[in-house]
Amino acid sequence: MDGYSLTDLWSILVMQGFSGLSLFSVLLLMALGLAIIFGQMGVINMAHGEFMTIGAYTIYLCSKITEQYFPALMPYYFVIAIFAAFAIAFAIGYLVEFSLIRHLYKRPLDTLLATWGLSLIMQQIFRSTFGAREVSATLPDWLMGSWKPTPDIDIPLNGLFVMGISIIVTIAVVLFLYRTSWGLKVRATTQNRVMAGAVGINTKKVDRITFAVGCGIAGIAGASFTTIASTGPTSGSLYIVDTFLVVVFGGASSVVGTVLSAFSIAQAQSILTFFMTEAMGKVVTLMAIIVILMLRPEGLFTSKVRR
């Protein structure tokens, strides 16, 4: 780290920190979705990344349609497109649960393989529909610029916007889980499936909605993703391992844990990337997580329970 003055280092830290925040936002949204599904059903959806890609392509399509037919609406389309991204990912998630996942409960390893197959099929559909090359949505102008609190520090607005989305979604998820009757049913099913069924909760329906909501949130992650990178057929699959590690690291059942772990992983990766190559930054981060998980396999934020 020689050759950097203290102010330089500070600026780098702040700027890398903020670029880490974009990664954090995407990871957090991905992880929230995955954690809800994993927490409730104990299955890992290896196609979760593809639901993010669905969200990203939805934004891309919306931007193209708006550009073509309603150019006057360009400044506003993005907000609506986010809802569209959620809705489409939700709907497809619902279908997937109905046709595939529900047959595989209690076989978590098989679910892993089946959803991997699903992810291959989805990737190929993306490739056939949108081509193998990466595409970018045309972003509204107000998302482009940057904010300069000091001459050395340059913070892109899209990063701040993405942060905002993540915060809103996280709060919405917490409210959904802890303040609605649906959330109560979800938590009841998570904790004791048999008992929840016995007191009249339709656990199958809860599963389906939970899975779909998880996928929908991945769709929003995809919307955020388009503001920081361009979208290709395999964009989402690159995130699945990281996302799972975020979930495990945070302890699958805790929203606070998921937030903290997404934050630390994204920041570590982003700051290390500056001092090493991007690949090495990722390697070091992944290794650190694995080592920590070996020391504390139940995650960082779980509580001891009676068996």
């Binding site: 892993l112 391992v241 690949a279 090495m280 990722k282 390697v283 992944l286 997580i289």
Partner: peptide, 26 residues
């Protein structure tokens, strides 16, 4: 020894494969 199993083991082995590939490529 720490009773990590099931999907945790699967994904962690996958992460190790990813790390190794990145290292070899890098």
């Amino acid at each position: 020894k720490r009773r990590v199993g099931g999907v945790y083991f699967s994904i962690i082995t996958q992460a190790i494969a990813a790390i190794l590939t990145i290292l070899v490529v890098g």
